[in-house]
Amino acid sequence: VGNQTEVVYARGYVGDATGEYNGVVTGQNLKDDRTPEELIAEAVKVATDADYVIFIGGLNKSNNQDCEDSDRKGLALPYAQDDVISALAKANKNLIVVNVSGNAVAMPWIAEVPSVLQAWFLGSEAGNSLAAVLMGDVNPSGKLPFTFPARLEDVPAHSVGEYFADRSKKVVDMKYNEGIFVGYRWADKQKKVKPLFPFGHGLSYTTFTYGKPAADKKVMSAADQITFTVTIKNTGDREGQEVVQLYISDKKSSLPRPVKELKGFKKVKLAPGEEKEVTFTIDKEALSYFDDSQHAWIAEPGKFEAIIAASAADIKGVVPFELK
Results as ranks from 00 to 15, higher is better:
K217R: 06
I232T: 10
S293K: 11
G127V: 05
V160C: 04
G200H: 07
A223Q: 12
V46N: 00
I226V: 13
E37Y: 03
V319Y: 03
L196G: 09
P156T: 00
A223G: 14
D188A: 10
D69Y: 13
K251L: 10
Y176P: 14
R11Y: 01
A286M: 06
T147S: 07
K212E: 10
K267T: 00
N64L: 04
V244K: 15
L95V: 15
V84H: 10
Y289P: 12
A271F: 05
A47W: 02
R257V: 08
P145T: 07
P272R: 03
L196A: 10
L134K: 00
A296N: 07
Y176R: 14
I54R: 02
G236S: 08
A286D: 09
V244N: 11
K303Y: 13
G136V: 15
A89Y: 14
D16S: 03
G183H: 02
V44F: 00
S221M: 08
S249I: 09
S204Q: 12
G15E: 02
D216N: 10
A132R: 01
D216E: 15
T209G: 13
K303L: 07
V24L: 04
D82Y: 06
V1F: 10
F290H: 10
T147K: 05
Q65V: 00
T147Q: 06
K251N: 12
S221Y: 06
G58Q: 00
P108I: 00
N22K: 08
T206L: 03
I308H: 12
K170D: 05
V53H: 00
L77W: 05
N29I: 04
T209Y: 09
K316N: 13
L203E: 04
Y9A: 04
R72I: 08
T147I: 08
G58A: 02
A126V: 06
V138G: 13
D292E: 15
K175C: 09
Q190M: 07
H201E: 08
N22E: 11
I248V: 08
Q81Y: 07
Y184T: 03
V14R: 00
I315L: 14
I282E: 05
K269H: 12
L30C: 01
A222R: 15
P195K: 10
T35N: 02
L246W: 07
G23F: 14
L152I: 13
D250I: 06
L255V: 06
P213H: 11
F304Q: 02
M220F: 12
Q225F: 09
W186I: 11
F280Q: 03
V259M: 04
N22P: 07
M220H: 06
A306Q: 14
G27L: 05
G23T: 13
T229H: 14
A150C: 05
Q190E: 13
Y176H: 10
T147A: 08
F55Y: 01
A17W: 03
S70W: 11
Q4K: 11
V84D: 04
L287F: 04
T207G: 15
L75Q: 05
D69W: 08
Q81G: 08
V171T: 02
N94G: 03
F197Y: 15
A87R: 11
P272D: 04
R34I: 04
S86M: 15
A296K: 12
L196K: 04
D83P: 10
K189Y: 15
M107E: 09
K260L: 10
K252L: 08
N29V: 03
Y163S: 11
R11I: 00
S204G: 05
F280K: 02
Q294D: 15
V160L: 09
A131G: 03
V319P: 05
A87L: 06
L323V: 01
D314F: 03
G123I: 09
